[in-house]
Nucleic acid binder design. Structure first.
Length: 223
DNA sequence: GACCAGGCACATC
DNA sequence: GATGTGCATGGT
């Protein structure tokens, strides 16, 4: 058993013991999760909640109705989530793909081979690796590990990656050393975000972090 | 008033 | 290929 496996599982157990199950993703339906994944790009979740609430209130949280909305109105509705013009475009690009390629059906997505589905998502303008993987894991339920800024910082801080590590490399660290289990990947990423919010901002406050007894390879972690 | 947030595409060198 | 920049609201 690789040493990395033990270390990653040790992290996981400590995070779970401290923060408890996170019950991610915070959304009622797979479609809501996918919309949230786009809206939360580089944005605090609280702002995304406001945008999603506005879409719900307008009864627009449904693929065809959402795509039928005037782009300027869509932008206004999601305004609290920031980057609203960009995100309105990205949502529409996603909706167009979702309806054209899958008839607005998550079940249709699930029937596709994972790698092919991921490539389809990445071909949509506005969906990058983190957003694609968030959709695959949290909306479709596939065993894909999501890497984000917190993941990078926490791993860097504990010497598991080098500063120049890229997304695929970080993702491989998890997928090659852990059982390919959607429930585990779901909880692990959510716990990383919980820990990151509490302790691993760009200016880390490590005192009290459940991982602080692990070696800290880097003292000042910046993005 | 700075700093930060579940990124991404595009321009430029 | 690497590095820089625009996009924007709202909370701490």
């Amino acid at each position: 058993m690789p040493r990395q496996t033990d270390l990653l599982m040790s992290f996981y157990k400590k995070l779970l013991a401290r923060f408890g199950p996170q019950h991610w993703w915070p959304g009622e339906t797979p479609f809501e999760v996918m919309v949230g994944a786009i809206l939360t790009q580089n944005t605090a979740w609280g702002n995304v909640e406001k945008a999603i609430a506005a879409l719900k209130l307008a009864d627009l949280l449904e693929p065809r109705r959402l795509l039928a909305v005037e782009p300027s109105l869509l932008a206004r509705l999601i305004r609290p989530a920031g980057y609203y013009n960009v995100k309105a475009r990205r949502l529409r690009a996603f909706l167009t793909w979702f309806l054209d390629a899958h008839g607005g059906s998550v079940e249709s997505m699930r029937r596709r081979p994972l790698d092919a589905l991921r490539e389809e998502l990445l071909a949509v303008k506005g969906i990058g690796r983190e957003t694609a993987d968030s959709i695959l894991l949290y909306a479709v339920g596939l065993p894909v590990f999501v890497v984000d800024a917190y993941t990078y910082r926490i791993l860097l801080r504990h010497g598991l990656i080098l500063p120049e590590a890229d997304y695929d490399e970080i993702q491989a660290l998890f997928t090659e050393n852990l059982e390919r289990d959607a429930a585990l990947f779901n909880e692990y990423h959510a716990l990383i975000v919980a820990c990151g919010k509490a302790y691993c901002r760009p200016r880390p406050r490590c005192a009290g972090c459940p991982l602080e007894d692990h070696p800290h390879a880097v003292d000042d972690v910046r993005d």
